[in-house]
């Protein structure tokens, strides 16, 4: 293409555009103040545009219908949240993204060191060695103590305690930050009331549930209660579980662990959970069994 042709084309384009600009005094779609009466002056004859269909402006409320409000009191699920066309309302979408971000944060967050210090928990490592990606990709490493951790336990902990309390962030550091203190203090009070003897409590950075078997081999406790952050969801990122096992050792199967889940502000209140867990531990000691075996023995 020679330079002359290019010049011609450019000229044509500029002419066309400038012609259009003269016509475009009115926008294609007008945004109208809904309080003004609608005047139909957009007929083809007057300005040459296709008339725009009038659409009634619609307002949205968070609780736009009382029926939904009643149903919503019964569930934390996102029901009756309204929509704008096929899309969620901006408010609902932002809330959803906020909850999702909170879930991600709880996996990657850190447990407050001053909290552990206050409760007298010292910290040990698993074979994950404090790397979040490894923790997620290698669950098996989260079930094993490092040699250093084993030595530390033997040097600092009571051996063969009746009840060994342990805690780990697991998949939610937030669960520990929010609930550990209340559950632990209430649990200790409950165990003292029931005259059960506790060992030395400690915290495990990035442990998996099965780690209690490795700990069982080292400390030989009668019962282990393991407070661990649950995999976060969109309803709460702060939920904690308590796994309780009678004589956990290598080879213990999952069905032999008793679990109480959903411990958080919106589930079972942590202080109430602590008081309840004491009575479960007493029952496990009485029946010398946990998990499904306990259910069977109870009859």
């Amino acid at each position: 293409m020679d330079s002359q042709t290019i010049e011609q084309i450019t000229k044509m384009v500029i002419e066309t555009l400038s012609e259009q600009q003269q016509h475009d005094t009115k926008p294609m779609i007008s945004i109208r103040n809904p309080s003004e009466p609608f005047r139909d002056n957009s007929s083809l004859s007057s300005n040459g545009f296709i008339p725009i269909q009038e659409i009634a402006p619609k307002e949205f409320f968070e609780d736009f219908d009382e029926k939904y409000a009643n149903a919503r009191r019964k569930t934390p699920a996102r029901i009756g949240i309204g929509r704008s066309g096929p899309r969620p309302l901006t408010k609902s979408l932002l809330k959803f993204r906020l909850d999702h971000a909170a879930a991600v944060d709880s996996v990657y967050g850190e447990v407050d060191a001053s909290l552990l210090e206050k409760l007298g928990f010292f910290t040990i490592q698993t074979k994950v060695e404090n790397d979040k990606e490894t923790y997620i990709l290698r669950p098996d490493l989260g079930r094993k103590l490092t040699q250093h951790a084993k030595d530390l336990l033997l040097s600092r902990c009571m051996i063969q305690p009746q009840v060994q309390i342990i805690a780990s962030n697991g998949l939610s550091a937030k669960a520990i930050n929010a609930n550990l203190e209340n559950v632990y203090l209430s649990l200790v009070q409950s165990l003292e009331s029931l005259q059960l003897a506790m060992g030395t409590p400690f915290y495990i950075e990035q442990g998996r549930v099965g780690l209690m078997d490795d700990i069982g081999e080292v400390l030989k406790p009668t019962v282990v209660i393991y407070l661990i952050g649950e995999r976060p969801g969109l309803v709460t990122a702060e939920s904690m579980s308590a796994y309780i096992c009678y004589q956990p050792r290598h080879g213990t199967i999952e069905s032999d662990r008793t679990v109480v889940s959903n411990i958080h502000q919106g589930g079972i209140p942590p202080v109430e959970a602590g008081a309840f867990l004491g009575t479960i531990i007493e029952k496990i000691l009485r029946y010398e069994a946990s998990g499904i075996k306990l259910v069977e023995k109870e009859g």
Partner: peptide, 14 residues
């Protein structure tokens, strides 16, 4: 009204 009876009862008893 809400779920705190066990811990409050236990605390009172102690």
């Amino acid at each position: 009204e809400s779920d705190y009876a066990k811990v409050l009862g236990q605390t009172l008893k102690r």
